[in-house]
Design a protein around this nucleic acid. Structure first.
Lengths: 322, 322
DNA sequence: CCTAATTATGTCAACGTTTACCGTTTTGTC
DNA sequence: GACAAAACGGTAAACGTTGACATAATTAGG
């Protein structure tokens, strides 16, 4: 009888114990489908993301799992590539997955079409570091502009003036936000951004490597490179090595994300710590709070997490010969 | 009516079309809990693994997801640390998760207690690269001994004789298997393994770094290091740098796994490609074949995948001064 | 044109829980 | 010891599908 196992009131201790013993003896496990059916809950939380670096995915996942650990909720992973070009497909996938709620990482969290779909079906969702429509749904954010500003200021204050920039995938709004932060820092320092030193990557090592080579091979070789994630920053270091440049003496390189590779690279990367794990935890936390409360009115809908500049060995003042 | 939507026979085209239109208009989605209840299936596949490198996790996950992509099955991730010391807890977790089947990565796949539990509850499972009880359950394997043999032979054939070894976590049977392969190769070459040059790591960068420093600081500095995964191999390169040794001139380093870091490290690592993604795909494939067939008799229970030695720039013959 | 076969549609039990309800027993109070 | 109140245990409806079965409508064959 369900009352005994679920510690409901109005049941004697003796009976409760006997039932629990019998259940244990028979290795009885309640049927989750039946429970779901009656509770109108699947106790499944979805996590959708798009092909970024392994360390990012794992951080994201671990953050969410950390919050779910002692809950009934389970995490279903639903990676999906090229959301920008086919948001409805992802929407269908999510709606068919029978989820109670979904965590949307970039760039899916910035697809209005997708948000429309899942709102229409009343599927609760939390957005991790979105960059548009910040008033929609639960939002867990990092101020990308401020983060970009911080790292660019670091480079400029070291004295660099010819600064190369490797942008991330243009479909990720993070790329634009960080660039905007760079711009502000450059403006404040009275330095102009040289468009010929701005290259577009896609957050992968390989493309980052190609773009870095182009920057270093150009007429105005930069003395520093701002890469929009760590993988591309590591690629820039590899490219520098090809040109016989040592980091940070001949070229400073700064990354973004504080991923594992930024620690294990040589030299260790100056980077910006994105508290991905904490943000994912927070997103899961707020999502399940909303699910369990069965109300979505009161809680603050947006929460900002702080970035942190980690100055390591890959940045230094430009050499006098530079 | 379910007949119309599920394309069952005995329903007129006209009715079928009308029902489907109405369903689409109302954004109707069948309730998965009710379907699960009657089908006695949750259409959930679990994946459990233990805190290894991000790239390994992502490969594993992507392999499994690749197979599940166009199936009804969804993937639930269930990482779990320190299985060796508490296998029953993982067993309970898995049994309570309401899964149709589970993919077990190391070291969970080598816990007899765990296998006993999930067998008793008739939870189908596939084991990815297990090392003991190879006749239990569905097995997707790589011959670790052969792989260890291959990489050790490579190092020996370059002429190295003083070879340091950094083992992985002892609770992973892979560590023992690879070491056994090293032994065979050393025996064949008539070279003895110097126990003072064997250190025990745990597959992490940090511990690998510490162990590598100890090896390089000892009385008999090795001319080559065999690390049992790439993260520790990269750590060994960093340690070598601390001692003013360049790789591969003064020290050869070989890793294991062909993880992303092995490509992006400098110099790029000689390593052994473990077809993790393919094995995970295969494990998922065989598992769902078993689930869908509702029989577990006929298919071969074990399948071996091939390793591949990738010789890159981190290994070279020992310098004459060595 | 009638019967039989075929095809289409409607009905209802079943899946395994939870919860509300109702009847019974125990406990407490005067 | 009688009564009210509280505690307990049993029963049955409900959750949203599927699939077996029954019934109704159509078609084919004699």
């Amino acid at each position: 009888m369900s009352r005994a196992l679920n510690d409901a009131p109005h049941v004697s201790e003796a009976v409760r114990r006997k039932v629990k013993e019998a259940a244990a003896a028979l290795d009885y496990h309640p049927n989750l489908a039946a429970q779901s059916l009656i509770a109108r809950r699947s106790y499944l939380i979805g996590l959708t993301y798009e092909r970024p670096s392994p360390s990012y995915v794992v951080e994201l996942q671990n953050g969410a799992l950390g919050r779910l650990e002692n809950e009934r909720y389970r995490l279903v992973v639903l990676p999906f590539n090229h959301v920008a070009s086919r948001p409805e497909e992802l929407g269908k996938l999510l709606l068919r997955a029978g989820l109670d709620g979904v965590l949307l990482a970039p760039p899916a969290c910035d697809q209005p079409v997708l948000l429309d779909m899942i709102e229409r079906q009343r599927l609760p969702y939390a957005r991790i570091t979105p960059h548009s429509d910040l008033d929609r749904g639960l939002v867990v954010a990092m101020d990308e502009v401020a983060a970009g500003h911080t790292v660019a200021t670091h480079i400029l204050s070291l004295g660099h003036r010819r600064v190369g920039i490797i942008l991330g995938d243009p479909s990720h709004a993070a790329s634009r936000g960080r660039l905007e932060g760079y711009r502000q820092a450059f403006d404040e320092a009275g330095v102009a951004i040289d468009d010929s030193l701005v290259g577009t990557g896609d957050f992968t090592y390989d493309v980052g490597y190609r773009v870095a080579r182009e920057l270093l091979d150009g007429p105005l070789r930069p003395t520093a490179i701002l890469a929009q994630n760590d993988d591309m920053a590591v690629a820039a270091i590899a490219a520098a090595r090809d040109f016989g440049l040592s980091v940070p003496q001949d070229l400073s390189v700064a990354g973004f994300d504080n991923s594992e590779v930024s620690r294990t690279a040589w030299p260790p990367l100056t980077t910006v710590h994105q508290p991905v794990r904490e943000m994912a935890w927070d997103a899961a936390n707020r999502l399940i709070a909303m699910l369990d409360a069965d109300t979505d009115g009161d809680a603050p809908r947006r929460r900002d997490h702080l970035h942190e500049l980690l100055v390591r060995a890959s940045t230094a003042p430009p050499s006098s010969t530079g």
